[in-house]
C-alpha cells in the first residue's frame, strides 16, 4: 500500500448525494480476477454513453486538471460492499475523497487501499462545493499528520477524524493483514480459551 502524508491538488466535484458503489463501478465490470485496470470503468455510465462515446457534461470528462481529490455529496459509497469501487478510484488517480459522511464498508475499503476518506461537516462541505463550482482551479491541501483539510488561498480549514491505528497504517503504508498475522498467537490462544470453548464447542 502506498504511504500517505500530505496532498495538495485540485479537486473534481460530483455534488450528488448517496453516490452508490454501483455508480462508481457497475456490476458488469466486476468480473476481473485481478485488482488492476478498474479505473477505466470508474463512473462508467456517467462518463460514457451506451455506444462508448464520452458524455460531454460529466466532470471527469470536462475537468481540465489531473486531480487527486474527489469531492462528493453526503453518504458517498453506499450500497454494495465491492472493494472494486476503491480500486477504481485509486486506479484513476484519486488519493482522497471528501464527503459529509461515508458508508461504513466503503470507508474501510478505502483505508485498506491508501485512499483517504475525509469526512467534513455539512457546513464545510457546502462551502467547499460552492468554491469548486465557482472555480474549478481551486486547490485543496490535505495533511494527514495534522488531520486537516484546507481550501488553499482561503481561511477555510477543518480538522477531520481518523483513528490513530489507521492513521499509522496510512502513514507507513502498512495493511491490516500484516498486523493480524503478527497477532496470530493471540488469535490461536483465543480459539483455545475457555471463553471461546465454553459456548462455541457445538459449532
Amino acid at each position: 500500500m502506498e504511504k500517505f502524508k500530505y496532498i495538495k491538488s485540485t479537486a473534481a466535484l460530483i455534488a450528488k448525494e448517496n453516490i452508490d458503489t454501483d455508480q462508481i463501478i457497475p456490476a458488469r465490470f466486476l468480473k476481473a480476477t485481478s485488482r488492476a485496470g478498474f479505473g477505466e470503468n470508474l463512473f462508467r455510465d456517467w462518463r460514457y454513453h451506451a455506444d462508448g462515446s464520452l458524455k460531454e457534461d460529466f466532470v471527469l470528462n470536462t475537468h481540465p486538471y489531473p486531480s487527486k481529490i474527489l469531492v462528493a455529496g453526503k453518504n458517498f459509497g453506499c450500497g454494495s460492499s465491492r472493494e472494486h469501487a476503491a480500486w477504481a478510484l485509486v486506479d484513476f488517480g484519486f488519493r482522497v475523497v471528501v464527503s459529509a459522511y461515508f458508508a461504513d464498508i466503503f470507508k474501510n475499503n478505502a483505508l485498506n487501499n491508501g485512499l483517504l476518506p475525509v469526512q467534513v461537516s455539512e457546513a464545510f462541505s457546502e462551502v467547499l462545493i460552492q468554491k469548486l463550482k465557482s472555480n474549478e482551479a481551486t486547490e485543496l491541501e490535505v495533511d494527514l499528520d495534522t488531520q486537516s483539510i484546507h481550501i488553499a488561498g482561503t481561511e477555510e480549514k477543518e480538522l477531520f477524524e481518523i483513528n490513530s491505528y489507521k492513521k499509522y497504517c496510512l502513514q507507513n503504508g502498512l495493511d491490516d493483514i500484516d498486523f493480524l498475522l503478527d497477532n496470530r498467537s493471540e488469535i490461536e490462544a483465543y480459539e483455545a480459551s475457555e471463553k471461546k470453548k465454553s459456548w462455541v464447542a457445538f459449532y
Binding site: 472493494e83 476503491a86 475499503n109 485498506n112 487501499n113 491490516d176 493483514i177 498475522l181 496470530r184
Partner: peptide, 11 residues
C-alpha cells in the same frame, strides 16, 4: 470488502 476477506481467510 475483499481486503477484509483476505484478512479473515488468513487469520
Amino acid at each position: 470488502g475483499t481486503s477484509e476477506v483476505e484478512q479473515v481467510l488468513a487469520t
